[in-house]
Design a protein around this nucleic acid. Structure first.
Length: 456
DNA sequence: GTTAGAAGGACCC
DNA sequence: GCCCAGGGTCCTTCTGAT
């Protein structure tokens, strides 16, 4: 049922082939059922079901006229989006494979070949590929993982080691794009268009040949006349990166970069190459681990690539949105496009825009660093507490850590937000806007305590 | 009608 | 015996104020 889809293994994730999904889900279910966590999941599932019901009843009473009008608007919107389609950039998404686990296996050779999970009994942040065969996943509680895989070795995270490895990976990436955007310790986007334009024939000769790279084929068949095979350079003699040849060259560049990353860190990195961030990110998952995927800069090839793509693979569509769309009989991008009139009528303009862009493969290709952070804070989960002084202590300690961080990073903030989680996993957030921006610890503490007392 | 602030959630790693 | 994280961003909805 609905709650199961929330707690079970995601079948679209890479490396699911060898997993006995039914057995794994049964273990997860039996260990979760009856817990307060499970009850909360059931509550949220019911909430989602309610949302779906409202949508379905709205859909049921739509007139053909309304649908036709929506179809016309959606169609016009699609034409508008097509004018924005930019195939000119070569965007790469790099994603280190099972990063934390890979660093541990590298540094602790006696663990190699054994299933390991990074984290503790409460929660794992990563699992090695050996452990994934048993259904062990990131964001899985350690005690459930141990039930799935009794030989699992829990390894305490060593963030300094991961940060060091991350810096090494980034140093290689910087050779190809000094303005790359890192999204976490193990993920980054690069725009290698300029790098490729500067490649000399000598540089090109140094690149690994495509044939050693292409397994499975890196460059999908382009079935359209949009790209012009044989036109690796344009009339001015400049390198044309949108052709199949241009993308094959990109594949060789990325292969070289991944080789360098492996040489300096002993870690494997997977990569996706495409004309925007979204497509590159989907691509980096295609041939994981230690693989890469290159999508031609070609509208027809992009649409063909996306047509049967499960909605869950789109970054930004999680379990809930997948479920809602499935209830509307939408499970892949093709259906997303076919049902655009319905989507236009049932979802907000922002969601509709997002769905259309996703299904068409039109997204931002900006890989420059994002501007400034929006928030900073700390949170911690602790055993059941109901004594006011105990809660105050916890609150003050988190305020202290946050104020310290703000001072270190020279940041100011104006809104103080207190987050509370009850024993039944309900989350409450209470916030106040201060008269002025501050990083002053006593001010933050007073505001937070005020919010806390409002709830006691 | 528009907007800013609050609260709740979905999602990502 | 341990028993579902913690750091974020963005979107949606509601509500009171301009």
């Amino acid at each position: 049922d609905a709650v199961l889809s929330r707690i079970s293994l995601c079948p679209h994730k890479a490396g699911m082939d060898s997993v006995n999904k039914n057995k794994t889900d049964e273990v997860i279910r039996s260990m979760s059922e009856g817990s307060r966590f499970y009850d909360n999941e059931r509550r949220k599932a019911a909430q989602t079901a309610q949302r779906v019901q409202v949508m379905k009843s709205r859909a049921a009473v739509l007139s053909t006229g309304a649908l036709q009008q929506a179809e016309a608007m959606a169609s016009a919107f699609e034409r508008q989006l097509e004018t924005e389609r930019d195939l000119s950039r070569v965007i790469v998404h790099c994603d280190a494979d099972a990063f934390y686990a890979a660093v541990e296996l590298r540094d602790q050779p006696h663990l190699r070949g054994k299933p390991i999970g990074i984290g503790g009994i409460g929660m794992l942040s990563t699992a090695s590929y050996e452990a994934r065969k048993f259904g062990v996943r990131s964001a899985m509680p350690g005690y459930i993982a141990l039930r799935l895989c009794p030989e699992l070795i829990l390894v305490k995270p060593r963030f300094h080691a991961y940060e060091a490895a991350s810096r090494q990976l980034q140093a290689v990436m910087a050779q190809y794009d000094p303005n790359f955007r890192s999204v976490s310790l193990d993920e980054a986007y690069l725009d290698i268009t300029d790098y490729m334009a500067r490649l000399t024939p000598g540089d090109v000769a140094q690149l690994p040949p495509l044939t050693t790279v292409a397994d499975p084929p890196l460059v999908q068949e382009a079935n359209s006349a949009d790209s012009k095979p044989g036109m690796a350079t344009d009339s001015a003699g400049a390198r044309n990166l949108t052709t199949l040849e241009g993308r094959a060259l990109a594949a060789r560049v990325v292969h070289q970069m991944r080789t360098r990353m492996h040489e300096t860190t002993q870690l494997t990195v997977s990569a996706g190459i495409a004309c925007n961030r979204m497509l590159a990110k989907i691509g980096s998952d295609q041939n994981k681990p230690d693989g890469q995927f290159c999508l031609p800069a070609d509208r027809a090839a992009i649409l063909a690539f996306l047509a049967n793509m499960p909605t869950r693979k789109i970054p930004g569509i999680g379990k809930v949105t997948e479920q809602i769309l499935r209830e509307l009989d939408i499970t892949n991008c093709q259906a997303l496009l076919q049902q655009r009139a319905l989507l236009k009528l049932l979802f907000t303009p922002i969601s509709f825009d997002f769905f259309m862009r996703s299904a068409l493969g039109i997204a931002s290709n900006n890989t420059r660093k994002r501007s400034e952070r929006k928030s900073i804070g700390h949170e911690t989960t602790f055993r059941e507490l109901n004594q006011v002084p105990d809660l105050e202590d916890k609150c003050l300690h988190l305020c202290h850590k946050t104020a310290l961080d703000m001072e270190r990073k020279a940041l100011l903030g104006r809104s103080v937000c207190l987050k509370l989680k009850t024993v039944d996993f309900k989350v409450k957030q209470r916030s106040v806007l201060l008269p002025a921006h501050t990083a002053d610890e006593p001010v933050i503490k007073r505001a937070a305590l005020g919010l806390l007392h409002r709830e006691l």
